[in-house]
Amino acid sequence: MRERQASPGGRRAREFEAFVAGAAGRLLHIATLLTAEAPDDNPRARRLLTLALAHTYASWDRLRGEDPYAHTRERLAGRFAHEAWYRRGGRARRQLSGALAALTPQERLIAVLRLYEGMAEDQTAALLGLPADRVRILCDRAVVALARPAYRPAPAVRGPEVAPS
Results as ranks from 00 to 15, higher is better:
56 T>K: 06
56 T>G: 12
56 T>P: 04
56 T>Q: 07
57 Y>W: 09
57 Y>C: 02
57 Y>Q: 11
58 A>R: 15
58 A>W: 03
59 S>Q: 14
60 W>H: 02
60 W>N: 01
62 R>P: 01
62 R>C: 05
63 L>C: 09
64 R>I: 08
64 R>C: 08
66 E>D: 14
66 E>I: 04
66 E>C: 05
66 E>P: 01
66 E>L: 12
67 D>Y: 06
69 Y>M: 03
72 T>F: 07
72 T>Y: 05
72 T>P: 03
72 T>S: 14
73 R>W: 03
75 R>E: 13
75 R>K: 11
75 R>D: 03
76 L>K: 04
76 L>S: 03
76 L>M: 01
77 A>T: 06
77 A>F: 11
78 G>I: 00
79 R>T: 03
79 R>S: 09
81 A>C: 06
82 H>V: 00
82 H>T: 08
82 H>I: 00
83 E>Q: 14
83 E>A: 04
83 E>M: 04
84 A>S: 15
84 A>H: 05
85 W>Q: 14
86 Y>Q: 11
87 R>V: 02
87 R>M: 04
87 R>S: 12
89 G>D: 02
90 G>W: 02
90 G>K: 10
92 A>Y: 01
92 A>K: 08
92 A>Q: 07
93 R>A: 15
93 R>T: 09
94 R>V: 06
94 R>C: 03
96 L>F: 05
97 S>R: 15
97 S>K: 10
98 G>H: 05
99 A>R: 01
100 L>N: 01
101 A>E: 04
101 A>V: 01
102 A>L: 07
102 A>N: 02
102 A>C: 12
103 L>G: 08
103 L>A: 08
103 L>V: 06
103 L>D: 09
103 L>R: 09
104 T>D: 14
104 T>R: 15
105 P>E: 10
105 P>C: 08
106 Q>A: 11
107 E>D: 10
107 E>A: 12
107 E>Y: 07
107 E>T: 09
108 R>S: 07
108 R>Q: 08
109 L>W: 08
111 A>L: 09
112 V>E: 04
112 V>T: 15
112 V>S: 02
113 L>G: 00
114 R>H: 09
117 E>S: 07
117 E>V: 10
118 G>Q: 06
118 G>W: 05
119 M>W: 15
119 M>Q: 12
120 A>S: 10
121 E>T: 10
121 E>A: 04
123 Q>G: 05
123 Q>H: 07
124 T>P: 08
125 A>P: 05
126 A>P: 02
126 A>K: 13
127 L>M: 14
127 L>Q: 12
128 L>K: 11
128 L>N: 10
128 L>C: 08
129 G>K: 08
129 G>H: 07
131 P>V: 13
134 R>L: 13
134 R>E: 15
134 R>A: 14
135 V>E: 12
136 R>H: 11
137 I>Y: 12
138 L>F: 07
139 C>E: 07
139 C>H: 13
139 C>I: 01
140 D>E: 15
140 D>F: 03
142 A>V: 01
143 V>G: 04
144 V>G: 01
145 A>V: 04
145 A>K: 15
146 L>C: 04
146 L>D: 00
146 L>A: 03
149 P>M: 09
149 P>V: 11
150 A>I: 09
150 A>K: 07
150 A>W: 03
150 A>V: 14
151 Y>I: 02
151 Y>Q: 10
152 R>M: 06
152 R>A: 15
152 R>W: 03
153 P>Y: 00
154 A>I: 00
155 P>N: 05
155 P>T: 05
